[in-house]
Design a binder for these strands. Structure first.
Lengths: 225, 225
DNA sequence: TCAGACTTTAATGCATACATTAATTAATGC
DNA sequence: GCATTAATTAATGTATGCATTAAAGTCTGA
């Protein structure tokens, strides 16, 4: 899943996790605004930890705090999607290249392939949400193997930011069969150490995804997800 | 300069700005640790805004908050430098490409060239800090012209994170004469719309900078800046 | 002397009180 | 009736108090 299973031992962390989940799962509607007090009551805590959590979520691009106007769930526009996918198109292939250059350990390989397996199974079962989760897990793990913590954090945030859009378009898009093939091929190339091909494949993969997603959003007029 | 000249109308913002500056300018020593109360007293405010500011600075990678152990100024290791410069090597050339593709307005061109001018003047005056500032301003503006706010934010944070290291090595490195040439050439290529060459030049420029910096750090044993 | 249990200390996490100030409403003058 | 200003309201920004709990220090018995 998406949530990185942290110890939520402080109220602030709990508030952070809960609010982030609510935003990502579209439980707090985009463009809607809430007062600190409301959120505090909603979460059963005082304003202090809510403030701390919302500040974090603001700097990560999920919320916008406009004093006296409330805490606003940031909608994700087409321009946001473009910007984010443009960066993913640069960064993820770089990660793939780096992993391919460094070599893929057996456990790493198995983990990635297990995600591909999950994606296959999900497709078979027609469980698109499960497919999306496995897809994300695959990409996050691949990036993690590149061994650059900052890169992982950035890419993770981006994936989380586009999460609503991905879910919203899941049923509108064609079944991601080729996508699964891409992943399998990518693992092969990475393991073979063919970093050039791995990078190119990943780049194409990401660009295809981007184009498809943006077209869906435009055609279906999903302007403010 | 580095500080983005914001309205510091709340204590939290003031705390954020002040602490960030103190960290970047090496006034708060790396690896040193401070208590919330200390910082609050130091800044002449209560713990609350200090807490909020330090949380931000932690998520941006400047501080580490370890309850009961204090707020620690994160030292920047060689690995950090590698990771950051690796990402800059991917992202800045991408920005240059994007600007070259979109075209450079007259004002934009002039602004960039004014930075180059400042760099020349600084070199002439042997004012290395001024040179570093102009260098950063050049790159930040170039990235800004790419029109991707997320990209700007990320790159800005990275530059700020390596600021201490850049300053510390300023007097150890050879005079950045070629660097100035690179910038001038880069502006030319960007303006000519030659995105491929612009990207490559920027990539080489960044990789050279990275190699030089890392070597300096290794040779001079500046392990925990 | 040293290990382990107990006590003390104090830093943090959180709630809350209060002051400030922006937004809203009411009031006033034209 | 409308614009402008004053009064009201209430949400935020900040300080502060308190409970919790980790760390440091002390004590005891082997």
């Amino acid at each position: 899943m998406t949530a990185p299973a942290q110890k939520n031992d402080t109220q602030t962390q709990r508030a952070y996790q809960t609010l982030k989940s609510l935003v990502m799962e579209n439980k707090l509607k985009p463009s809607a605004s809430y007062l600190e007090t409301e959120l505090a009551e909603m979460l059963g805590m005082s304003r202090t930890p809510v403030r701390e959590a919302t500040l974090q979520l603001q700097s990560e691009g999920f919320l916008s705090i406009r004093p006296r106007h409330g805490i606003i769930v940031l909608p994700i526009s087409i321009e946001d999607m473009q910007d984010i996918y443009d960066l993913l198109t640069e960064l993820e292939p770089y990660a793939a290249e780096k992993v391919a250059r460094a070599g893929l350990g057996a456990e790493a390989h198995d983990l990635l392939m297990s995600h591909v397996g999950a994606m296959d199974a999900a497709l078979e079962a027609d469980d698109l949400v499960a497919w999306a989760d496995a897809d994300q897990a695959f990409h996050m793990d691949l990036v993690r193997f590149a061994g650059n913590a900052r890169l992982s954090k950035i890419i993770g945030t981006f994936w989380d930011q586009v999460h609503r859009a991905r879910i919203a378009t899941l049923t509108l898009r064609p079944k991601p069969v080729c996508s699964n093939e891409d992943h399998r091929k990518l693992v092969e190339l990475v393991q073979a150490g063919n970093w050039k091909a791995a990078r190119k494949l990943h780049r194409d993969h990401r660009e295809n995804g981007k184009t498809m997603l943006l077209n869906l959003i435009k055609h279906h007029n999903l302007s403010h997800l």
